[in-house]
Simulated assay, not measured.
Amino acid sequence: MKPTDRPDDHAAPTQQDAIYARLRQWITVGRFLPGERLKIRTVAAEMGVGQMPVRAALQRLAAEGALVNVPNAGVAVPRLSLPEFDDLLQMRMLLEGEAAERGAARLDAAGLQALAAMSERMGQALAAGDADAYLGDNEDFHVMLYRAAGSPLLFQLIDTLWLKAGPVSNQLFETPEATGVLNDAHTDVVKALQRRDPAGVRRAVEKDIFVAGQFLRRRLQAASR
């Protein structure tokens, strides 16, 4: 340690990075809703940390477009217009379909077994009405499949889209007819993997995004009237 160093000189950035990563993940899985204002004091209390690193993390997320600055009111989760939502949906199908097909060609037997277990747990979570459990396994399912593609750049682009999609995606659980079909595509992914059919995996992922997107689009249309 250099004489000018203090024990906490390197701890603060590490804590800030961890808080940023956790908040980013919360946004990605839809823990916050579109239009919701994020109060620094409330978020800090929920995370059990100080307000300063939370403020820094929220501003970092606002700079990335995951949040928006509201004059005299801190930050909030952005709302998507219909054209923005349609563009997001199309880009997700394009990029995630590509990652799914590449990942399917490279996934090993242990990976397939893990995805099958996650799909089963997602079905159980939907039956129990446990949105948090479903969203957690859903994220892990897609992360594992897409990372298997072996393209960090492709995954980074997808991760950026998830930041924008997460808040609106959480509203699927306010649509009763959606919960009955949300896991169908994951079952199709597992079956296609078992057949060694990467193109089939791509179609299943595209179907997953498209079907969920139609439920969400109808909600956005109704809200915009």
Rank of each mutant, 00 (worst) to 15 (best):
P34M: 10
L193V: 05
N69A: 15
K207L: 13
A62H: 03
H10T: 11
L172E: 08
M118H: 05
V181H: 10
A192P: 03
L23K: 02
L163R: 15
A104W: 00
V70Q: 09
G136H: 02
L220H: 10
E96W: 02
Q214K: 15
I27L: 15
A199V: 10
D197Q: 11
A11C: 08
L94C: 07
F155T: 03
L220I: 15
E120T: 13
G50H: 11
E64V: 12
E120W: 06
A11S: 13
F173E: 00
E64W: 07
F141D: 00
Q171N: 14
I40D: 09
R218E: 15
A127Y: 03
N138K: 06
D140E: 14
V43M: 03
L82N: 07
L220Q: 08
G97H: 00
A148H: 05
D87V: 10
Q156A: 15
A105G: 10
L33V: 11
L157K: 11
S169L: 13
N170G: 15
R202Y: 03
Y20W: 13
R79Q: 13
I40T: 14
A56Y: 04
L145N: 03
N138I: 00
D197C: 09
A18N: 03
F210L: 14
A192R: 01
L95R: 06
A21F: 06
V75S: 01
L154N: 07
T42S: 14
N138H: 11
P71D: 12
L216N: 05
T179W: 04
R60F: 06
Q194G: 00
L89M: 09
M144W: 03
